[in-house]
Design a protein around this nucleic acid. Structure first.
Length: 492
RNA sequence: GGCGCCAUGGUGUAAUUGGUUAACACGCCGCCCUCUCAAGGCGGAGAGUUCGGGUUCGAUCCCCGAUGGCGCUACCA
């Protein structure tokens, strides 16, 4: 690590060939946490040198994903496609110092040789044929217009290249295993190997925190740092996130794009908290007074606690159940006012317009949120609290309103409420229980039936709290309507 | 195939870096509460630390091997 840098400079460098996926989001989060912890700088760099697969639309999707989980950046976004000169200059330096050379092999030749090697059971590595061409001759051929790529000359000294990874420790590769990789393609566009190093040096990065899938690429980069005489950054590779079957997380396992979780009704802070704990633990600092591990960490606490030391080496499985748990915890902890804008998005999507006053809406969110697992609940299961436009859950009707006698009694109950002078939790309960006693039925039967009549659901908060929340008029109306509710025909 | 990395209940992780009845959280099961369902409270099942060898008085922890998983193996990133 360079001692001229007092604070770390890190980067998140996605390739815009897809949306921000959960692995990328976690890498971004770790970089962000690391930068914020040390008061360092986070740079956002778009690695779009694969013109075929990159698109501006994907860049927007990635930024949207980052912003959603609350990540910002200090510099950038920088686009590699706009920094081509830097890469060409870097390649020229390497060429000049003898660390790189022109390769005139065509793609077809390369493919053919690779196929032959595989068929013969030999490693399909580039055979370094063009490395033996005299540099002067190569320069002439290039000047004459012959198409060529630039390759890095990996030391043929029988030695090894290693680096000290902040999470994995010392990792070493025999130089004989590293092929003379392409730096500059024949069309003058750099490959990833060149552009990362050129940019990481140019942007004076001190720590490279990225997915463990880059471990095998690292020696190629270390070699370039040395050839360029640049200070070596600290490498920290983060284990990958796997699906429930322990294979690489993919669409097969459900949502892989971060934004999909937003669309599923996940609260951003819950997602961020969940992600932070995949492959990282605060260790002893994350235990409570009883020595139990804590799981719920807000943004500030996460950045205070974050450290490279807490990153584990083994891959982690993405567990939807745990995410769901985080989500309910966060929804319950949010105040109604903070929840409201998120819920309004869901209402818009569900084409629901609440016909209640703002204060009523806030009070209702508080009433209902202890039972919410997901933002979607506010638009679906809890719909009857916010709008008169709701439906009855057939299963709930079958369970509690199947009995005609119960339905008739609920309708009869209406008169009692209409003539009541007050309408509080205590009074509504008292009226119902007295009525049940008169009729010789269990209060529970009427309560459960009324719940379905009032909310359309079998699941709800305390019935009398619901009554007060809805208000006398709605209660009267909905109870009266009980008679018209159709009981689903019992099949089988 | 070659190279690299990893390996603690179903999942995420702990275990004063050799000495614990292997801990916590999620999930699961049961009980309590009760007008339903969550929540909450209480209790439970579930790993002897992938397997096999070592080193040691003693290994989850150190070493070797095997197995398994993952990653890389492009003029993709």
């Amino acid at each position: 690590m360079s001692d001229t840098a007092s604070t770390p400079r890190v980067r998140f460098a996605p390739s815009p060939t897809g949306y921000l996926h959960v692995g990328g989001a976690r890498t971004a989060l770790f970089n962000w946490l690391f930068a914020r912890h040390f008061g360092g700088t986070l740079i956002l760099r778009i690695e779009d040198t694969d013109f075929e697969r990159s698109s501006e639309e994907m860049v927007e999707g990635i930024l949207e994903g980052m912003l959603w989980i609350g990540l910002n950046w200090d510099e950038g976004p920088f686009y590699q496609s706009k920094r081509l000169d830097l890469y060409r200059e870097t390649a020229a330096k390497l060429l000049a110092s003898g660390h790189a050379y022109y390769c005139f092999c065509t793609k077809e030749e390369l493919e053919q040789r690779r196929a032959e090697a595989v068929a013969a059971g030999r490693p399909p590595m580039f055979n370094r044929r063009c490395r033996r061409i005299d540099p002067a001759v190569a320069a002439d051929r290039k000047a004459a217009g012959e198409s060529c790529a630039v390759r890095f000359a990996v030391p043929e000294d029988g030695g090894a290249t290693s680096f000290d990874d902040a999470v994995f420790g010392k990792v070493e590769f025999a130089n004989a295993e590293i092929e003379d990789f392409v730096l500059l393609r024949s069309d003058g566009i750099p490959t990833y190997h060149l552009s990362v190093v050129a940019d990481d040096i140019d942007m004076r990065l001190t720590h490279i925190i990225r997915g463990a899938d880059h471990i095998s690429n690292t020696p190629k980069q270390v070699l370039q740092y040395r050839a360029l005489g640049a200070p070596m950054p600290v490498f920290a590779h983060v284990p990958l996130i796997l699906g429930p079957d322990k294979t690489r997380l993919s669409k097969r396992h459900g949502a892989t794009s971060v934004i999909a979780y937003k669309e599923m009704g996940i609260v951003p802070e819950a997602f961020r908290n969940f992600l932070a704990l995949l492959g990282w633990t605060p260790g002893a600092a994350g235990k409570d007074a009883d020595g139990k591990d804590r799981e719920l960490f807000g943004s500030e606490e996460l950045t205070r606690l974050f450290s490279l030391d807490g990153i584990s080496k083994s891959n982690a499985v993405f567990d939807n159940d745990k995410l769901a748990w985080f989500n309910t915890e966060y929804i319950r902890a949010y105040d109604a006012a903070k929840l409201l804008p998120l819920i309004e998005e869901e209402w818009t999507k569900a084409e629901l317009t609440p016909n209640r006053t703002h204060d009523e809406v806030i009070a209702t969110i508080d009433l209902v949120k202890p039972r919410a697992r997901n933002l979607k609940d506010f638009a679906i299961a809890f719909r009857a609290y916010f709008s008169d436009d709701f439906t009855y859950d057939p299963a709930a009707v079958t369970k509690f309103l199947k009995d005609d006698a119960v339905r008739a009694m609920l309708v009869e109950l209406v008169a009692r409420y209409e003539s009541a002078t007050e309408f509080t939790e205590a009074s509504t309960e008292q009226i119902l229980r007295a009525f049940a006693e008169e009729k010789g039925v269990k209060a529970g039967a009427l309560i459960n039936g009324a719940r379905v009549a009032l909310t359309g659901q079998a699941v709800a908060p305390s019935l009398f709290a619901v009554m007060v929340n809805l208000g006398k008029d709605r209660v009267v109306k909905r109870l009266t309507a009980t008679a018209a509710i159709t009981v689903p025909a019992v099949s089988s």
